[in-house]
């Protein structure tokens, strides 16, 4: 029972890593998306390289690099900071791809209508393109977020005291052993399901409003 409570107490850290990394990922991915759509090659190429690196290098390597690698230099990150930043970088790569797909899903005529009406680029994207792209991206965004809830456990390797780290610690100290991990699994499911439900509700709502 105390194992359960210990893991339960680590849920906020798991959520903090997840939401933090997702937020970092969204912000970076927005920047990457604009860079990749730019006419300037010197903006496009670095953005593409960043996406490829973010997705091509295993998350665990990113975390070890940011925690130990940068530590050798001037910047010293805490485990939590390195975890959020590392998973944020990886998320940025995937989210940039999701954004790209969302923008592609918006019919070319929508861009043209906005241009022909003389709307500024900001208005075209914020009022016309983004709402439609968001609708197209929502399922992929929700899937990625829920995946991230679980993948945040990778941060345990650099000592972030989230659910898996706590379960591991407890399992070693008590006689419960693997049983603690089953509890952790149950809690992961309990945490993920509400997000899935919210995502499905949002989808239905968007379908209805724009249909």
């Amino acid at each position: 029972m105390s194992g359960f409570l210990a893991v339960l107490a680590a849920v906020p850290i798991t959520l903090l890593v997840t939401i933090g990394a997702f937020a970092v990922g969204i912000v970076l991915a927005l920047g990457l998306t604009f860079m990749r759509r730019s006419k300037q090659p010197w903006l496009r190429f670095p953005a593409q390289a960043f996406v490829d690196l973010a997705r091509g290098i295993p998350p665990i390597v990113w975390l070890l690099f940011l925690y130990f690698g940068l530590g050798m230099g001037v910047i010293k990150l805490s485990p939590l900071q390195a975890g959020v930043l590392g998973l944020g970088v990886v998320s940025a790569g995937y989210l940039a791809e999701i954004f790209r797909g969302g923008l592609l899903a918006v019919h070319k005529g929508q861009y043209e209508a906005g241009e022909a009406l003389g709307l500024s680029a900001w208005t075209r994207y914020s009022k016309i393109i983004a709402p439609q792209a968001f609708k197209a991206m929502l399922p992929a965004l929700a899937t990625y977020f829920i995946g991230l809830v679980k993948d945040s456990s990778i941060a345990s390797v650099i000592g972030v005291k989230e659910m898996v780290f706590t379960a591991n610690q407890y399992a070693r100290r008590s006689d419960d052993g693997i049983y603690t991990f089953f509890l952790a699994a149950a809690i992961y499911i309990a945490v993920s399901i509400p997000f899935a439900v919210v995502a499905r509700r949002m989808e239905t709502k968007l379908q209805e409003s724009a249909k």
Partner: peptide
């Protein structure tokens, strides 16, 4: 200059 397209291009949302 206003423009009208073959595919209407109203904003569906």
């Amino acid at each position: 200059v206003g423009m009208v397209f073959q595919s209407f291009n109203l904003f569906p949302h």
